[in-house]
Design a binder for these strands. Structure first.
Length: 699
DNA sequence: GCGTTTCCGA
């Protein structure tokens, strides 16, 4: 803004003395053009000007360039420039600068540069115009290059120059250059300029040097709303959400009014941390400072409540009378979709007044999240029929569908589409593709693709490959890949989850302990999944005490973690502890699954609890709606056989709703022979010889 | 300011 005002005042002073006396025809032309402009007919005005070999006042050219800029009229801009250079023998520099600015605003960088290069004389404004043409069009590298050229040409920039090049050096993550520019700013005495100072905070933040960003921020004497917004945003993007929120509240304490986007950034920090308390406090501030009519703020509030798991609160804001934009709609649809409330999500989706590709993706993600692959596929087909808009997220989700079905042939078709449309180098898409090959069990394709990704793969790619090796039992291979991985990237908690599982399968206590130690030493987060893997590794390696310790230190438990420790107890003859864990689960509100009951039945075998075993067996279907599977029947038969319960066994065998397997029948047969129970033994032998006629069974 | 990837149990 400061630049525009300065330019306007220069224009005013220059305009009168440099205007040449006009011919009568020139005056008429000027009047015609001006009246057409008044009638909003830019195109007509310019074509009349273009056809007339008369010069008009510089002020009119300036006005025309401005109008061309605001209406992105490239053709008209060219005509105006052409007229200017044809009928003014020496057009003033400021007007040519205007032309460059105009080309820049129209995104016409080639014309801008051509004019810049051909100018007989340039001033600082010419450089600034060219610089902002590059920065505004996202050519940060070009802008930085031009700034360096400017310095070699010994042209001293002004504040506008620095503001615009700082934006670009941040975009290019040019930390070294940014520091040099910072030095120049200090040297030229522009330190008190809050725009430059805030830009410096922005640059350091974007280059992830938050300590420098903060130091710069603290040095700003007259911080404005933008300065505060920058520091809140930078902490957020640097992954320090806590400090982001701290700064937001500091801003309020120092009596500053946030921008709507500052609210949005602070609320986003709350979402990422799932810190509902702070989010609600900010909600209070929103009401107090009267931002309730701002759709950006409302959208962010809705999303915060959704991400903190408070769907009902999000809805309350959503259904309040007032503005509801597409982003709020999408947030709320996504909220229902990711909470597994697909039907409600779909109803809302159908009610949306307008949708973009993100709304479609949010709904599609709902289907994939709740593993509804067929529904996801038909929704994708609907999406294709309705909109031509597909992006990398859609493709990632579609690949998840291929992996979930699993349908490697469809996956390959998607692969072809990705290849043809240049999505391959998108790391999300290419990881989803890798994951698809892994989950479809096509390790060969997975590996080929993994090697093709070598230019842009990341730790997610490594984790996906490691997991697929571990899943198909190639634990040693997974460990080898882990060593290779460290040459390229650092492991994450996801890596360790997989590796610990591989150690558990190999009973590799030493390596498992090494990984555990590594995680502690390097401050890795021990989330519930990692703890689950650790518990399983320690129980399989016969270190139940370690397993119990890891389990107890966990701040929360899930069904997998509990199952691991229950099995661990059973394997170590501590069935009583396993049964106690089951009551703990009930107390904690963790819903047991069929694996839990398998463990519980094993515990009953351990403790010879015959009656209790049957009680749990019945509880499974009566109370939890879990249909007993083969392993549960095996456990019950084992329980009866081991304890010599002939009658119970006979009654129980009648309840088996499927044809008993060979191993089940063999167990019954052997037990009956030992106990001299001919009737049931004969029944088992008969069934067995039917399954395998070559074997004879003697009762 | 809205949507997408990788990890634990039988």
């Amino acid at each position: 803004m400061a630049g525009k005002n300065a330019a306007a005042s220069i224009l005013k002073t220059l305009l009168k003395p440099s205007s040449t006396p006009q011919s009568a025809a020139g005056k008429t032309l000027t009047q015609t053009v001006l009246s057409l402009l008044k009638a909003n007919r830019l195109q007509k005005a310019v074509s009349i000007l273009f056809a007339s070999p008369e010069s008009v006042p510089y002020s009119l050219y300036a006005h025309l360039f401005q109008l061309c800029s605001s209406s992105h009229a490239i053709v008209e801009a060219r005509k105006v420039e052409s007229h200017l250079v044809s009928f003014s023998p020496t057009p003033p520099i400021f007007l040519l600068n205007r032309a460059i600015e105009c080309y820049g605003k129209c995104g016409n960088l080639n014309d801008a540069r051509e004019l810049f290069d051909e100018m007989p004389e340039r001033d600082g404004g010419s450089w600034n115009a060219m610089l902002s043409a590059y920065t505004q069009n996202g050519f940060a590298g070009k802008a930085v290059e031009l700034f360096l050229e400017m310095n070699s040409a010994r042209v001293l920039g002004n504040e506008i120059t620095y503001a615009s090049v700082l934006g670009s050096s941040a975009g290019e993550l040019e930390l070294g250059l940014s520091r040099q520019i910072h030095g120049l700013i200090v040297k030229r005495g522009f330190c008190g300029n809050v725009i430059l100072e805030s830009s410096l905070v922005d640059v350091y933040g974007k280059c992830m040097v938050m300590s420098d960003a903060r130091r710069m921020f603290d040095e700003i004497e007259n911080k404005n709303a933008v300065s505060w917004n920058v520091i809140v945003r930078r902490y957020l993007e640097a992954g320090d959400e806590k400090e982001s929120i701290v700064m937001f509240f500091k801003m309020l304490r120092e009596d500053n009014c946030p921008l709507n986007f500052t609210f949005a950034n602070a609320l986003l920090a709350c979402s990422l941390l799932s810190s509902l308390k702070e989010g609600m406090q900010i909600h209070g501030v929103v009401i107090k400072m009267d931002f309730v009519g701002d759709e950006v703020v409302l959208g962010s509030l809705i999303d915060m409540y959704v991400k903190c798991g408070k769907l009902e609160d999000a809805c309350r804001i959503f259904y309040q009378p007032g503005k509801r934009d597409m982003i709020s709609w999408t947030s709320i649809v996504s909220g229902y979709a990711t909470n597994g409330r697909i039907r409600e999500a779909r109803e809302l989706f159908n009610d949306m007044p307008e949708r973009n590709v993100i709304s479609w993706n949010a709904m599609l993600a709902g289907y994939t999240h709740s593993l509804q692959w067929e529904e996801a596929l038909s929704f994708f087909n609907l999406m294709q029929e309705t909109t031509k808009d597909i992006d990398h997220v859609t493709l990632g989700l579609l690949l998840n569908v291929c992996a979930g079905l699993p349908d490697v042939e469809m996956g390959k078709q998607v692969h072809g589409f990705i290849y043809r449309h240049g999505y391959s180098i998108n790391v999300f898409v290419s990881n989803a593709l890798l994951d698809m090959y892994c989950k479809c069990g096509n390790l060969r394709c997975a590996r080929v693709w993994f090697y093709q990704m070598s230019g842009w793969r990341d730790k997610v790619s490594w984790n996906a490959l490691l997991t697929s090796y571990a899943r198909c039992g190639q634990s040693e291979q997974a460990m080898t890949f882990f060593s290779k991985m460290q040459w390229e990237t650092t492991p994450s908690k996801f890596t360790f989850g997989t590796l610990l599982a591989a150690c558990a399968n190999m009973f590799a206590l030493k390596q498992g302990k090494q990984i555990h130690c590594f995680m502690i030493r390097n401050g890795y987060e021990m989330d519930i999944v990692v703890r689950g893997a650790l518990v399983d590794m320690y129980t399989k390696c016969n270190c139940l005490d370690y397993a119990i310790r890891v389990f107890k230190e966990s701040s929360s438990w899930d069904v997998i973690l509990c199952n691991s420790i229950i099995f661990g107890c059973c394997c170590n003859g501590r069935g009583k502890d396993a049964l106690e864990l089951f009551s703990l689960m009930k107390k904690e509100g963790i819903k047991p699954d069929h694996i839990t009951f398998h463990g519980i039945l094993l515990a009953c075998i351990c403790e010879c609890h015959i009656k209790l075993g049957l009680q749990y067996f019945d509880l499974m279907s009566n109370e939890y709606g879990i249909i007993p599977q083969l392993e549960h029947y095996v456990c019950m038969i084992e329980l009866y056989c081991q304890n010599g319960c002939m009658e119970e066994l006979e009654n129980f065998v009648k309840r088996i709703p499927f044809d008993p397997t060979v191993s089940l029948l063999t167990k019954i047969f052997r037990f009956c022979r030992k106990q001299g129970h001919t009737k049931l033994g004969e029944w088992a032998a008969k069934k067995l010889s039917k399954l395998d006629p070559s074997v004879q069974f003697q009762v």
